[in-house]
């Protein structure tokens, strides 16, 4: 939006409002969080924001209201999985199954 304005009114752009930039930035942050919600855990093939296959099997009653035990884990390589799934796998082989790098935890979702 702001770029179009820029091109068509290049002769009088000295008073270009700063507000445009703030709006654009907010927009891109919203897109990013939507992407993460749709990420699939490559181990159990369930979305990382949902409870993993194991936790789903455990409490069939209320799958959607996950109780906080099934969190998301990010590695230093930026790949994410369910913490449940990944902690089982690292017992076999301490590598990220997607990029084969040595696995070390960068952060956990709250």
């Amino acid at each position: 939006m702001s770029e179009d304005n820029d091109k068509t009114s290049y002769d009088s752009d000295s008073s270009k409002p700063d507000k445009m930039f703030t709006l654009k930035k907010w927009n891109s942050v919203a897109m990013w969080s939507w992407d993460v919600e749709c990420e699939i855990c490559a181990i159990c093939r369930v979305q990382v924001m949902d409870a993993c296959l194991r936790c789903q099997a455990e409490s069939k009653k209320d799958i959607q209201s996950k109780d906080g035990a099934c969190v998301v884990v990010w590695g230093e390589c930026n790949h994410s999985f369910h913490h449940c799934c990944m902690s089982l796998w690292v017992k076999q082989n301490n590598r990220c199954p997607l990029c084969q790098q040595e696995w070390s935890i960068q952060r956990l979702s709250s």
């Binding site: 490559a42 181990i43 799934c85 796998w89 076999q92 082989n93 590598r95 199954p97 997607l98 084969q100």
Partner: peptide, 13 residues
């Protein structure tokens, strides 16, 4: 193969 270190072995992916 399990416990392969070359990235060619078994992965849950």
């Amino acid at each position: 193969r399990l416990n392969s270190i070359d990235g060619m072995g078994w992965m849950p992916t």
